[in-house]
């Protein structure tokens, strides 16, 4: 059988979601942002949420997420996405409201808004991209930079005595009564992408069922900021980030309930 016989519409098993448009993403080659955003778009399509979804974009590399995913968006000030999402969600309870934030946005400048939105149990999904660095501004130390990690503001590696400790904000959030589902995922392999997609889907369903805040951390790479090739960055993440930020569910209050039909 020739290739030309296989490459036919009816044989497609994987293609770009219609909710993702054709704009070429501005991310560096191999950046995890693209993979996570693709997964979000696929789920919005699969769950038929394009008309109900309102995304809140952060400040950071992913500020232009609104250029790629074909839903209504609001661009928040640095760190304020959970407050913006609260405003939208409280006044539009029929909508599916989600934020997409990096570690500087969510865990540093926006830590207050994040903790309080989660503690109030706002019916929103928060997607937290943790790559341990400020990508857009040129690779400075983030709240989640692990000890010893070299960044442009920790040129000799993060030293807890000098720079403070890395913040495991997801562990804090898992303790808050307003959250129903808190999980830590990654997207560096196909298996990880499948798991991450399942986790985000669960988060979306929880929000649709008004079960409070769902929080999905995605431990990610910033190969430009880390000054590695994308493949080497994935390996470095496995070896160095995962021991400190172990993958898996941190909290799943509703796992005993029957799975939704979606």
């Amino acid at each position: 059988m020739e290739l030309i016989d296989i490459i036919k519409q009816e044989n497609i098993v994987y293609k770009k979601s219609k909710v993702l448009n054709d704009v070429v993403m501005h991310y560096c080659p191999g950046c995890s942002h693209g993979t996570v955003q693709k997964v979000i778009a696929e789920l919005i399509e699969e769950l038929d949420l394009q008309e109900r979804a309102i995304g809140v974009a952060p400040v950071g590399c992913s500020v232009f997420i609104y250029n790629y995913i074909e839903v209504d968006w609001q661009e928040a000030a640095h760190g304020r996405a959970p407050a913006v999402a609260t405003g939208i969600s409280r006044l539009n309870p029929d909508k599916f409201v989600f934020t997409y934030q990096g570690d500087g946005d969510l865990a540093s400048i926006g830590s207050g808004e994040t903790l309080h939105a989660c503690n109030r149990g706002e019916n929103i999904l928060i997607i937290f991209i943790n790559n341990g660095i400020y990508g857009m501004t040129g690779g400075q130390m983030a709240p989640t930079t692990i000890e010893g990690m070299v960044t442009s503001t920790t040129p000799f590696g993060r030293n807890a005595e000098l720079n403070g400790h890395p913040l495991k904000i997801t562990e804090l959030i898992a303790k808050l009564p307003g959250t129903s589902y808190v999980t830590r995922q990654s997207v560096h392999t196909a298996a990880a992408v499948r798991k991450c997609k399942k986790a985000i889907k669960k988060g979306i369903q929880n929000v649709l069922e008004k079960k409070g805040t769902s929080f999905v951390e995605v431990v990610s790479t910033c190969n430009s900021g880390w000054k590695m090739t994308p493949v080497a960055a994935n390996k470095w993440m496995e070896e160095n980030m995962f021991p400190f930020y172990p993958l898996g569910d941190l909290k799943d209050d509703i796992k005993d309930e029957p799975a939704s039909k979606n």
Partner: peptide
């Protein structure tokens, strides 16, 4: 698997 990990969603996969 290649399509799943592609950050730029530039892979379409066929199977027969």
């Amino acid at each position: 698997n290649c399509g799943l990990v592609c950050p730029d969603t530039c892979i379409t996969i066929y199977r027969a």
